[in-house]
């Protein structure tokens, strides 16, 4: 197999700080020693693949998947769509994108969530899909509600959707959150604030995309995701190939 080169090292400056007293749980859950940096190898450059046959027709439709297509979830209908690319700007095809979220009232379907907003009997809160040949993905869902959480005296999470992306290499693995344009809670959120560079946080805020909203049906929000790319190794390969 051709050597596609090592992964481009992560720029940790764009990511959230691991230790942030404003987000209390991070205090005891952040390493105190520096990470050990090393060039990637096969363990990081390879990764699992998932076949199209594994996915059901409603897997990326959170409005209908929990009820098996029998009754829609309550809430503001939205299309969440975008493209998965790598740092070279190339679309990442056939890669797994998974999302999870609270319902329209801000409640998760999880045994640990006891928020007083009710569960929606027709909403599970998870979806999954593979990107297409160009790296595009889409989910039909409802806009999640903001919710309070135990941190400081009165902290609320802005409306958000959690996203997990694979890429083609285990070292590209990424989990992040999508926020919604115009939500005033973003500026007050200690989790959003773990990203210290405001222009980087802005990259997690999805704009309203009227060009992809469907009249009389749903609004659209666009959210592109960039995964680590590969370093070119033309000279190294020649040496190794001898």
């Amino acid at each position: 197999m051709a050597d596609l080169g090592p992964l481009i090292p992560r720029n940790r400056d764009i990511h959230p700080v691991p230790y942030d007293p404003g987000y209390k749980t991070s205090v005891a859950r952040s390493p105190s020693q520096p990470l050990l940096s090393m060039e990637s190898g096969a363990s990081e450059e390879t990764g699992p693949t998932f076949g199209h046959g594994t996915f059901g027709a409603l897997d990326n439709n959170l409005i209908m998947n929990f009820s098996k297509g029998t009754a829609p979830a309550i809430g503001e209908r939205i299309l969440m769509h975008g493209k998965v690319l790598d740092e070279r700007g190339r679309g990442v095809p056939n890669t797994l994108v998974e999302i999870w979220q609270a319902n329209a009232g801000g409640r998760y379907r999880h045994k640990k969530d006891g928020y007083l907003a009710p569960l929606d009997p027709n909403f599970g809160g998870c979806g999954r899909t593979l990107t297409d040949d160009e790296g595009n993905y889409q989910f039909l869902t409802i806009r999640p509600g903001a919710y309070p959480w135990p941190n400081r005296g009165n902290d609320w999470r802005p409306m958000h959707i959690h996203i997990s992306v694979f890429g083609h290499s285990f070292g590209q693995r990424l989990i992040t959150q999508m926020y919604f344009q115009g939500d005033p809670l973003i500026d007050l959120c200690p989790i959003a604030a773990t990203i210290k560079n405001r222009s980087q946080l802005d990259r997690l805020v999805a704009p309203l995309d009227m060009s992809n909203s469907r009249p009389l049906d749903f609004l659209a929000y666009k959210f592109d995701i960039v995964l680590r790319g590969r370093r070119q190794t033309m000279f190294e390969n020649k040496l190794e190939g001898m």
Partner: peptide, 14 residues
């Protein structure tokens, strides 16, 4: 070059 998307915590309901 495009920068990698910043991470956020997976949270309690991952």
């Amino acid at each position: 070059i495009h920068e990698e998307t910043p991470s956020q915590t997976a949270g309690p309901y991952v």
